[in-house]
Structure formats: structure tokens, C-alpha cells
Write a protein that binds this DNA or RNA. Structure first.
Length: 453
RNA sequence: GUGGCUGUAGCUCAACUGGUUAGAGCACCGGACUGUGGCUCCGGGGGUUGGGGGUUCAAGUCCCCUCAGUCACCCCA
């Protein structure tokens, strides 16, 4: 216990690493499919990169310290300031719109709880330099495509989407003063966490009448697109926001991800810097924290780097998503990454012979891309068979005949014996083969190379 | 930073009201057997009962502190 990792940090044993690696592959391929390109920045940044954006109170959440040169620094808690700096530095030279993604490991200093550690990996996808709503749709489409790729459909995950401009227009339409808007936003953000009395009090303290506060709660809870259009007919700001949202929906339909969408004016996202459409992805049963959150933050680059460029992006953490994926596996179902670490071939070594011949055979197999394991010390054939089974290799090759004319019997290891996976074993069923024959058969695709994750 | 709950082998758990040398299954390692098969049988390594202190003739068990895990609050990138 005492020799474990630091609190909130994880050891990735090979089984766990396989899951992480599987998830990363899907993240990367989903983002690339939309033409996004990968970047990275330093895991350590000057402390003031974060205090400038979020104020000094953020330091309580940061994994910060003083380095040996006396610099105040922090492990990065988020990627946005870093990418904003990088984009701002080359703002004029970059082809627009900038579509970048990254998979940084992020850190924060706080007590861990369900779905939150002190360290996690996060897919960050951002678009810079595009104000059109098509960029908003593209962004959410990437997030939903990741969901689809990892096996989570619209019945498993919902994208709760709002638009801060729509909410602001609605609040204005309800007669709420400009000065009270931030407090009402804060109250709306707390819906579902605080009870109604506390929410109403929060708004009344900002000068909102109790009756209006009640209407705010009703309107947000309903989050009914058609009702908004009806109730606020003639309100130019609301109509403009609704029109934009209608186009957003049409584009998401074209992306094939409309089923994930759920209008929810209660999605505010605490950060002050969001300016437009914002969204969070949740599991449909409401068992977990948000899987993903993001939106449009058109003013942030100007505030941080002085470059005025519209921007939007999201972050998707590996912890909650991983927990959700595991929880959705059927009892006894093997996860998709289960066989990622298994060798293709367990190559049995003949008893009483030097290992060199086996190594040469293994080399021939490896040169065509196979993962090959064999015993590093003399072992009985029954022992080797057991080892092959427990390695979960796809095939077991057992030597027969004299070393001068070495033949192998090809056996499929049962658990992984998919119809494709048995190809080699079927090919050589009832007879033995030389390594050359096996290599040749593999090269023609008989072995089932496609089922490797 | 605050509060609740929980800490026994790698994992899941047992051990009467405080009483002998803290046990079992799985996993791991070794051996036997089977020689188209993951079986079965035998054996083995593994624990400062999270750590420290206290009460007691005697503590895994009771008390205090601490550390860790977990859940919630705060906060959310």
C-alpha cells in the first residue's frame, strides 16, 4: 500500500495500458477523420499562464511549485492557454481555419473522487479562426463520432447543448436586467444541484423578482425549442439565436449525429469565457460525471494573446469515458482491447535442441510483422502448450520431425479462434508445414491479420 | 481545504465476546499426469493484518493519531 503511486496517480499495468492505448487510437483516428492535426506543448508552464486567465484563486487547484531556478511553475491543468499561446504566436502564418487536436496529460491538485484524479488524459479538439456555426457543428460531430467509435450510441450518451446567446436573449426577454445576468447564469448552472429555494434566493439577491426567477427555472427546465419560438415570437435576439440553432441542428443531422443532441439551457459551463454554443456529453443514465465539455470562446485569444480570433473547442477526459465504457460491457464480455497484448504466435521449441533454430524460425515470422513468443529456457512440450494457452496467442506452432527438416503443426488457440483467426490452422489442418510455408501463407492474408486491434 | 464510510496475501473474502503459529478460493511459481490440449492431482513462494502509539496477561479485533482508498462538499479546465 505504502509503496503505491502518489495519491490520484495511476500505474498503467499492461491490461490497463491496453485500454488506454485503444482509447487513444480512437481519439486520434476520429479527429484525423475530420482533418484535425495533432500538436503538443510542454507539460510544465509558468504559473501566471493560468492565473492571468483564471485569477489567483485557481492556484488552489493547481499542481504548482517553485523550480530550482526560482520560477513559479505549474503542471498544466488544461490545454487551452497553451494552445492559445501557440496559435497566437503564429496567428498570421497559420492556414485558417486552424483545426488542431492534442491528447495531453493534465494535472490538478485536489482530492480525488469518482471520475476525478490528480492526473488524466484529455482529448482536446479546437478550431480557430472560424465564426460560422458550421464550425460548432463540426466540433460536436467529432465528439459524437468518438462516442460512436467506442461503441456508445445515442441511447448511451446524450449531448446536452445550449447557446449562451440564446439564454441571454431569453433572460433579457423575461425582463431581467443586464446587471443581474451573471448571477442568473450562475443560478441556472446550479439547477439540479441546489434546490429551488436556494436558486430563487440566488436570483432575488441579484435583484430578480421571485415570479421572474420561477419563470427562469421553468423555461430552462423545459428547454423546449418550439415553445421558445412561440413564447418569444417577435423578440429579434431570441429569434436570431433560434435560427442559428436550427441551422446547427440541420448540420448535425447531415453529420449523422443529431440523435445525440438534446437542447438543455441548463448547460452554462462555469467558465466565464464561453460566448456561444456550449455543450456537455453525459451518459444517458446519469450515473457519471460529464464525459466531455466544450463550446465557443470567441474572446479568449484576444484576452490572452491580443490576437482577435474566433475559437471553439472541447476537452474529453479518459477517466469518466473509460469507466462508462467498462460499465456498458455485458457480463462476461471481453473488452475490445483484451487481446491487444497477446502475441500472434507461440512458437514451441523442440526439447533437447539448442534454441538457435527456434530463434531463426521466430525471426522469419517476425520479419513479416508477426508477434512471436517462445520459451527462453528448456521446457517440456506440455508445459509449452500451457504457456501458449495462457499467453492467449492466436496460434501455437509445435515442432515435429528432425531439426534438419523442421516441420511445424499449426494449432489455433481456442478462445481467439474467430473464423478469420483460424485461417492458418485451417490452411494446414491435418499436416505439418515448414516456417517458409507458414510465412508464405501469412503473407497472402490467410492468418487473419485484419482482426488485430 | 471540510465531512462521511472503509483498510487482513496480487484479487475476492474468512478468523466467536480480545485468546494457540492469521486461513481459503482465484492468480503466480515448481512438479506429476494427459501427449489435439485451457483438465486433474501434488507441492511451493508469498502478510510487520496500511503505519505509529495506547489499554490489556494477551490486540487483526478496543481507543487515539496518522497515511491511503472511496463518496460527497468546494471547484470545474
Amino acid at each position: 500500500m505504502s509503496a503505491g503511486a502518489l495519491p490520484g496517480f495511476r500505474d498503467f499495468y499492461p491490461e490497463t495500458f491496453a485500454q488506454r492505448s485503444w482509447l487513444f487510437d480512437h481519439w486520434r483516428e476520429a479527429a484525423r477523420g475530420f482533418g484535425f492535426v495533432e500538436y503538443d506543448g510542454p507539460p510544465l508552464e509558468p504559473l501566471d499562464l493560468y492565473t492571468r486567465k483564471s485569477g489567483d484563486e485557481i492556484v488552489g487547484q493547481l499542481y504548482n511549485f517553485t523550480d530550482k531556478g526560482g520560477r513559479e511553475i505549474s503542471l498544466r491543468p488544461e490545454m487551452t492557454p497553451t494552445v492559445a499561446r501557440m496559435v497566437a504566436a503564429r496567428a498570421n502564418a497559420l492556414r485558417k481555419p486552424v483545426r488542431w487536436f492534442s491528447m495531453p496529460q493534465l494535472f490538478r491538485y485536489e482530492r480525488q473522487q469518482k471520475g476525478r484524479l490528480r492526473e488524466h488524459f484529455q482529448l482536446n479538439v479546437d478550431i480557430f479562426g472560424e465564426a460560422d456555426v458550421a464550425a460548432d457543428a463540426e466540433l460536436l460531430a467529432v465528439a459524437c463520432t468518438v462516442m460512436r467509435r467506442v461503441g456508445l450510441g445515442p441511447d448511451d450518451v446524450k449531448a446536452r447543448v445550449s447557446d449562451r446567446r440564446l439564454l441571454a436573449a431569453v433572460l433579457h426577454g423575461l425582463g431581467i436586467a443586464e446587471a443581474a445576468t451573471p448571477a442568473v447564469f450562475a443560478a441556472v448552472d446550479k439547477i439540479g444541484r441546489d434546490d429551488d429555494a436556494a436558486l430563487v434566493k440566488r436570483m432575488r439577491d441579484a435583484g430578480v423578482e421571485a415570479e421572474v426567477a420561477g419563470r427562469v427555472l421553468d423555461t430552462v427546465r423545459a428547454s423546449d425549442f418550439d415553445a421558445l419560438a412561440r413564447d418569444f415570437a417577435g423578440n429579434a435576439d431570441v429569434e436570431a439565436a433560434l435560427a442559428r440553432f436550427a441551422e446547427y441542428r440541420a448540420l448535425l443531422d447531415a453529420h449523422g449525429v443529431l440523435e445525440y443532441l438534446q437542447l438543455d439551457l441548463g448547460i452554462v459551463r462555469g467558465l466565464a469565457y464561453y460566448t456561444g454554443i456550449v455543450f456537455e456529453l453525459f451518459d444517458a443514465r446519469g450515473e457519471f460525471r460529464a464525459i466531455c465539455g466544450g463550446g465557443r470562446y470567441d474572446n479568449l485569444l484576444k484576452a490572452l494573446g491580443g490576437v482577435d480570433m474566433p475559437a471553439l473547442g472541447f476537452g474529453m477526459g479518459d477517466v469518466v469515458l473509460g469507466e462508462l465504457i467498462v460499465s456498458r460491457l455485458a457480463p462476461g464480455e471481453t473488452p475490445p482491447w483484451a487481446s491487444a497484448n497477446a502475441p500472434d504466435i507461440w512458437l514451441a521449441a523442440p526439447e533437447g535442441e539448442p534454441l538457435a533454430g527456434t530463434i531463426r524460425a521466430a525471426r522469419a515470422l517476425r520479419e513479416c510483422g508477426l508477434r512471436v513468443e517462445y520459451p527462453l529456457r528448456p521446457m517440456s512440450s506440455s508445459k509449452q502448450r500451457k504457456a501458449a494457452w495462457s499467453s492467449a496467442a492466436r496460434y501455437l506452432l509445435e515442432p515435429e520431425g528432425a531439426s534438419a527438416d523442421r516441420q511445424y503443426r499449426v494449432k489455433a488457440v481456442a478462445e481467439r479462434a474467430t473464423p478469420q483467426g483460424q485461417g492458418l490452422a485451417q490452411q494446414f489442418e491435418g499436416r505439418t508445414a515448414t516456417i517458409e510455408e507458414i510465412v508464405a501463407a501469412w503473407r497472402t492474408g490467410v492468418g487473419g491479420a485484419t482482426d488485430r486491434p
